[in-house]
Amino acid sequence: MSEKKTKRRDFLFTATTAVGAVGAAAVVWPMIDQMNPDASVKALASTEVDVSSLTPGNTLTVLWRGKPVFIRRRTQKEIDEARSVKMEELIHPEKDEDRAKNPEWLVMLGVCTHLGCVPLNDKGDYNGWFCPCHGSHYDTSGRIRKGPAPWNMEVPKYEFVNANTIKIG
C-alpha cells in the first residue's frame, strides 16, 4: 500500500519536473535568441559594387555586413603564382580555380580567420596579404600559408551583375 503511494509521488515529481523544464526552456530561448542578428541587420544582406575603375594589381575594399571585402583585380603573375601551388603545401587546401572562378577577380572577406583583424595588401612572405595582429601570411589567392590563422580568407557568395558591377551577398 505505502509502496504504491510512493510510486505515485515519484511519477508526479518526474512529470512536474519535466513540464517545468520544458516551460523554463521555452522562456529562456527567446531571451537567448534576442541576441542573434535581428531583422534589420539581416536586411543589409547584399551590396553592389562598381569595379570599373579597378586596374590590374589593385584592390578595392568595400564594407559588407560590417566587414571589409577585398576585391582584387589580379595580375597574370599573381594568377600564375596562385595556380602553380601544390595542394600539399597548403594548410587549408583549396584550389585557386575554386576560389576565383574568373581568375582575374578575387573577391573575399578581408578578415583574418585567426581573430578577425583586417590583413594588409601586398605584404607578407607570399606576396598576398599579411595580418599585423598575430602574423598570418596569405598568398595571392588569400590562402593561409604561415602563421596562426587556421583557414583561408572566406570567399563570400557573389556574382557579376554586368561587366562592371559585382553583387556581394
Binding site: M35, R65, G66, K67
Partner: peptide, 16 residues
C-alpha cells in the same frame, strides 16, 4: 555571431 548580434562588432554589440 550571437555575441555580436550581427556579422561583425557593431551597434548591437556595443549596447549589450
Amino acid at each position: 555571431t550571437w555575441l555580436w548580434g550581427g556579422y561583425s562588432v557593431d551597434n548591437p554589440t556595443l549596447t549589450r
